[in-house]
Amino acid sequence: MNFLPLWRYRDQLIDGTIVTLELTVIAACFGLLIGTAGAVALKGRVKPTRWLVRSYIELFRNTPSLIQLFIVFFVLPNFGLKLPAFEAAAVALSLYFGAYSVEIIRSGLDSVPRSQIEAGQCLGLSGWQVFFHILLPPALRNAYPAVTSQFVLLLLGTSLASQVAADELFHVAGFIESRTYRSFEVYAIICAVYFAMAMSFKILFAVVGALAFRWPRRR
């Protein structure tokens, strides 16, 4: 075992880490947008849209992320939509994350009792004011643990993007391995970097959560 030859590649590792973080954040943002839109659609009255959202969720939750990525990257070009590796990965991961977000956001919104909404209406607040001031804060708090743990799974899941040669951390590992032939050492380091990132996010989320949600829990 010899980790020294890897030191030369520290810049590549840092670049890969940055791309991984970019990919994670982009997919998380778009995924949450999809999730919010989907949750609103599920609560809505239009039946075909509800059915469409349900199918989307089942389709993306019951097939491997890897296959979804392959379809976006290898198959969409047949329809004239050729995406570069990073963009393809961002699209595939957004859709995957979105499918999980819908349920999380919906159950967050559902967790707020109807009586709270009524109380807001009785004080003469508008629908938007009720949503923003009454419904959203407790819904966010209830959805927060699930969203953040899903975020960490997404961070780890971006490693799949290496399979379409997006320049993220895991792909960088393959590159360094091909130059140094130190396979085990490379992947040991890569695992450590992912672990460090995952732990940092968990700690960050715990701190942010403690600062943002200070009100005592309902008894």
Binding site: S115, Q116, E118, A119, G120, H133, P137, F213, R218
Partner: peptide, 8 residues
């Protein structure tokens, strides 16, 4: 049930 807003 009072219906106070527990986050405020």
């Amino acid at each position: 049930a009072f219906n106070l807003f527990s986050h405020l």
